[in-house]
């Protein structure tokens, strides 16, 4: 079933769309370190037998598991929040990038647009410079109508070009949409 032809309800939430697009791209291994913003997505993934869902102790570990699974022929994604991403430069620079392993990352963006923790706000500033310096494709998803296109096309490109990719869930999507 292609994503384009999939039946979709106009009222789908962002997390429902993500689940549908992951399935359409045969991404079935989920390794996450929890986050409040990601909680509805994590709940949905746990409830769906299609996915093998792992919760390792650390984001680095999750990247290692997804990288190993890719080399063994199974597609996976790492879910984390901004502060978790900040623990990853070494593994991205020494494993995912040089070995050309398409590690998919979905990062809920904390520390901006209404976060009240200075620690989150500071660590958030490090995310894009790290992604830029490693040459890793990244896009922020800010609108519900863009979720399907950005997630689907970034996954396709990551596997086609054998490169890691970072999908950033902006508060414009996850907080503003939820408030409507």
């Amino acid at each position: 079933m292609s994503v384009e032809n999939a039946a979709r309800a106009p009222s789908e939430a962002w997390d429902e769309i993500v689940v549908r697009v992951l399935k359409a791209n045969k991404v079935e291994l989920i390794a996450y370190v929890p986050d409040k913003v990601l909680a509805p997505l994590i709940k949905r993934l746990h409830a769906d037998d299609y996915f093998a869902v792992l919760s390792p102790a650390r984001e680095e570990e999750a990247v290692g598991i997804v990288a190993g699974a890719y080399m063994g022929g199974r597609r996976g994604i790492v879910l984390m929040q901004t502060s978790g991403f900040a623990t990853l430069p070494n593994v991205l620079a020494s494993l995912a990038v040089p070995f050309q392993i398409p590690v998919l990352m979905m990062i809920s963006e904390r520390g901006t647009l209404g976060d009240f923790q200075l620690g989150q706000a500071m660590v958030c500033r490090t995310m894009r410079p790290v992604l830029e310096s490693l040459g890793i494709e990244h896009h922020a998803i800010t609108r519900l109508e863009d979720v399907e296109f950005i997630v689907d096309s970034m996954i396709r490109q990551a596997f086609a070009t054998q490169a890691p990719a970072a999908m950033i869930l902006s508060p414009l999507l996850t907080k503003k949409t939820a408030r409507k």
Binding site: E61, G64, I65, V66, M71, G73
Partner: peptide, 13 residues
């Protein structure tokens, strides 16, 4: 990361 990578391979195969 040898253990996580090997675990990923083990899950895939």
């Amino acid at each position: 990361l040898a253990v996580p990578i090997a675990f990923g391979v083990a899950l895939a195969q």
